[in-house]
Amino acid sequence: MGAYWGPREESPADCARRTAEFLTLLASCDPLLAHWYKPARTRQEARKHPLMPPDLDMLTESFRRGANREKGGPAIEQLGFTFWFGNGGARGADVDLRITCGDHGGATPNSCVMTLPSSGADAERLITAPVLVDVLRSMAQAWDPDWAVATSWDHRAAMDETPRAGGFVGWVTYLPRCRGTVPPLPAPVRIEPVENRGTLIVLAPERLTAGNPEHVERGRRVGELLARAGMLEPVISR
């Protein structure tokens, strides 16, 4: 799952405020997403440093320390700030968040990327359309992205040989209002508004898989319709 947006100059404090809002929203999506911890050498050590409830001063300092810089040199502020942390789960059952915020150089997108467990009881509960919709809605509200998506790596690869952020359709896709008006889409595709910000597009109520030809064809068809409407331009054009 990931939200992506183009150049936007923001300070470490701005990034911290958005992160705090996002973590607060996530906590209501699923119990597994209600606990987050600062990075540490071991999971046991990380659990001594919780990020919930969010502490703006601590988050601000974490982003400040995550400034891009040449080794031993000053921060390159136009490249923004990065903070990577997790929920402290066991290997293979954990959830990681990597946030890059404040990049206004335009070389790469800003992003908030979440990796989910691939198997087990938590994965079965999390990887469902209702939960993914809730998480993507939270990303849209906190980060105001140019595009966001929830899908598998295999499905992403099936959509395009070289898929780029903003240029393809996943299981659940978010498009902001500034990209235009979503055209009529074939059933059983569902659309949901996100306040006055944009639209969520859900390709299938059941789990979407790249091994299902119908799912792949539906994703390509919806992608064609959205591209024709001018709504699937890459977040970063180069």
Rank of each mutant, 00 (worst) to 15 (best):
T60F: 05
T115P: 03
F63D: 04
P109Q: 13
A67L: 10
E70F: 15
V113G: 01
S119N: 08
G106N: 13
T108E: 07
H155W: 06
S119G: 07
D57V: 08
M114T: 10
G73M: 11
I76G: 06
V95A: 12
T100V: 15
A158C: 05
V149G: 01
A123D: 03
A67C: 15
M58D: 07
P130S: 13
S111C: 09
G105F: 07
A157Q: 06
T151G: 06
L116F: 02
A107Y: 14
N68V: 14
G66Q: 08
A123T: 03
D122W: 07
P74S: 06
D57P: 05
P145L: 06
M58N: 11
A90L: 14
Q141H: 05
G106F: 13
D122T: 04
F83T: 11
S62N: 12
A107S: 14
S152A: 02
F81S: 05
F85T: 00
D144R: 04
G102C: 09
P117V: 02
D57H: 04
T100D: 14
G88D: 00
L136N: 03
R69N: 11
S119A: 12
H104V: 02
P109A: 13
M159H: 03
A129K: 07
M139L: 07
W84G: 11
R65K: 15
R64Y: 07
S118L: 11
D134F: 02
A67W: 08
M159T: 04
A93V: 04
P130Y: 12
D154R: 13
A150K: 02
R64I: 08
R137K: 11
V113I: 10
T128Y: 06
A121E: 14
M159V: 06
T128L: 11
D154S: 10
H104E: 01
D154F: 11
S118D: 07
D134H: 08
D103N: 14
R64W: 06
R91T: 10
A148M: 03
V135F: 01
R137C: 00
C112K: 00
D57Q: 10
V149L: 03
R69I: 10
A148Q: 02
N87T: 05
T100Y: 13
V95E: 05
G89R: 01
S138R: 01
